[in-house]
Simulated assay, not measured.
Amino acid sequence: MKGSGVFITFEGIDGSGKSTQARMLAETLRATGKDVVLTREPGGSVGAEQIRGLVLEGDPDRWSAETEILLFTAARRDHLEKTIQPALDAGKIVVSDRFADSTRLYQGITRGDLRGVVDTLHGLMIGREPDITFIIDMDPATGLARALSRQTSEERFEDFGEELQKKMRVGFLAIAKEFSDRCLVVDGNRNADVVAAEVAELALERLA
């Protein structure tokens, strides 16, 4: 599935500021006259948002890694069908807070040796990668403190603690090397405006 638009994703550990950066980039691109759809995962469509509540709330051991992979893939498929692909087909820029790279790490590596399962399901049911992925790199302890300070009901993965954050950071940097054609690593340990300026510059270079 490939449209005429551009698909941009943001990845990073919890509390890295990726959600803020996704929003700020969408605002910057809109200011230049571009048609932008800002979305998120899990979620981004009615069905996917319903699944979001299942996977992000409750006890840390609520689901096995295998069940999580199926739930996230189902949510992503609905998100792709209902939101992402129609926007890309219309020539729009889609900016998403998370996509498949998060599942490759959270469920595929850090929750069990299931990366092959994630990639197989991704190939069968999703079938596309982003055009550009920004990985917001962040100190794990700082990211966890930020994430926990939000005090939302969606804290299931934050409850796994700093060790998961450390594994995720290593994993995201490995993803950046594996998919070096689309991944750009940005230092998130700085003021949000400074980070946003770098992200915007890199995005506009790629879009040009």
Rank of each mutant, 00 (worst) to 15 (best):
G127H: 04
S64D: 13
M168H: 01
E158M: 01
S45K: 11
L29M: 02
S153H: 13
K34L: 10
L114R: 01
L80E: 05
A31L: 08
M168K: 01
D78K: 14
Q85E: 15
N189Q: 07
D193P: 06
G161L: 10
V37N: 15
F10H: 07
A75S: 15
T9S: 12
A65V: 11
A141I: 10
Q165W: 10
G47Y: 13
V195E: 00
M24N: 03
S4F: 05
D59Y: 06
V186I: 11
P60S: 07
M138D: 05
L71K: 10
S19E: 10
T152Y: 07
F7S: 03
R115M: 03
S19T: 11
G143H: 04
E66V: 12
A176V: 14
L207W: 02
E205D: 10
R150I: 10
V94T: 03
V170Y: 06
P86R: 10
T110S: 15
K92N: 13
K167A: 09
R128F: 11
A141P: 05
I175P: 01
I109G: 00
E41W: 00
G143D: 05
L124S: 04
F160N: 13
E41Q: 06
L173T: 07
L204C: 10
G123W: 11
R206S: 06
A31S: 10
M24K: 01
D59W: 04
V36E: 09
I69S: 01
F7V: 00
F160L: 15
D187C: 04
A26F: 03
R128V: 08
V37C: 15
T9N: 10
R30P: 03
D187M: 02
E163R: 14
G12W: 02
G5I: 04
G53M: 08
P130Y: 11
R104L: 08
L207N: 03
G127C: 02
A87W: 15
A200E: 05
S180G: 12
D97P: 01
M168P: 03
V170R: 08
G47Q: 12
D137L: 02
Q85T: 14
G58M: 06
L184Q: 09
F99E: 05
I109S: 00
D101W: 05
A147I: 09
G44Y: 09
E201W: 11
D181Y: 09
I136P: 00
F172K: 03
F72T: 01
L204D: 02
R115N: 02
Q151N: 13
R40F: 06
R23L: 08
T152Q: 02
D137E: 05
E201C: 13
P86D: 12
D119I: 12
D78W: 09
T110I: 15
A90F: 11
P60I: 05
T67G: 10
D14S: 10
V194A: 12
D101Y: 08
T133F: 13
P42L: 04
G161A: 12
T9K: 07
A145R: 08
E162P: 10
E201G: 15
A100P: 05
T28K: 01
D97C: 05
G12H: 02
A141D: 09
D187G: 07
M138E: 09
